[in-house]
Simulated assay, not measured.
Amino acid sequence: MATTKLGLIGGGVMGEALLSRLLQQKLYQPSEILVSDPQQQRRDFLTQEYGVEVTTDNHLVVTSATEAFLLAVKPQIFDSVISELGDWQVGSHTTTLPLLISIMAGVSLHKLEAAFPGQPVVRVMPNAPATVGVGMSAISAGHNVKPEHQELATRIFESVGQVVEVPENLMDAVTALSGSGPGYVCIFIESLTDGGVCAGLPRAIAYKLALQTILGTAVLLQESGIHPAQLKDRVTSPGGTTISGIAELESCGFRSAIIEAVLAAMARSQDLGNQ
């Protein structure tokens, strides 16, 4: 039987996204991954779709994983998961503890390290586009994390997109921007589509135009490396249509509304972390 290198506690949407991309990029073989999930239907699906080993035993996941195990569960059940594990490190025959990776929003490194004493721990905040391989993940490292742990965490999350490293005191800001950001973008796409419909376009065409415009603009900015203000200036002719639309956005407080949305989301993330 192959050695379990990576363990996943939680085989939900984000857990599966990581699993599929890690296997696709051959960073791990199916036989090297063990996933725990309480739902029989979900376990059957993961086995059938990806060929990985599955279990209901979280304790088995953390005692089997030699490189890393990932906590991909809702923060509300963190305490119950910890109580299931008990003194799992006692009697361990390994000389080095595997890296613990948490993607639970609001659960601090301090709380994680208290629950897993001596463990190398990183917090990661991925976002929804990670499920299609174009996500943005921010990583904060705990006290016991060494360069090789940081490299491992980065390699794992680069499988689903881009990665940045931030100090933990900025995690709430990351959550508010890139974690919640897809929600803001969806409202903008929906509103842009509604504007097209209001202007007379069929909804299906308006939606296609809006969606591709957002995607194309993002790719153009990414590949060209120019500042958004520069691109805005390039497409804004004197007395033209674009500047008329921008003037209306400014009069409605569009910029400040986005800024305030990020600040409100950050405040809520801080509140959740203190509960």
Rank of each mutant, 00 (worst) to 15 (best):
L263H: 15
F157M: 09
S269V: 07
A128N: 15
V166W: 06
D44R: 11
G118A: 08
T193Q: 00
L34C: 04
L152F: 12
S137Y: 00
A267S: 14
A17M: 05
V197Y: 00
G86T: 07
L70K: 04
G133K: 03
L97T: 12
H93I: 14
Q212M: 14
L19I: 03
F188W: 14
G15D: 02
A2T: 12
S137F: 05
S237T: 14
A257H: 08
L201C: 02
V13T: 10
E113C: 10
G12T: 01
I9G: 02
T175D: 05
H227V: 13
I33L: 05
S251L: 07
G216I: 07
R43G: 05
V235Q: 06
D87F: 03
S191I: 00
L8R: 00
L60H: 10
I246N: 03
D87N: 14
S237R: 04
V163Y: 02
T95N: 13
E165I: 12
D87R: 05
G135M: 07
I259S: 09
E113K: 09
G273T: 09
Y184L: 10
N58S: 09
P38G: 02
T241Y: 08
L109N: 06
A128L: 15
V52C: 06
R268C: 01
N169W: 13
Q150T: 14
A210Y: 03
T236M: 13
K111H: 11
L170N: 10
S159Y: 01
A218P: 09
Q222D: 15
R123W: 07
T131H: 06
Q222M: 11
E49M: 13
T56L: 09
K208D: 15
L46R: 04
L109I: 12
E84L: 06
H110Q: 14
P228Y: 11
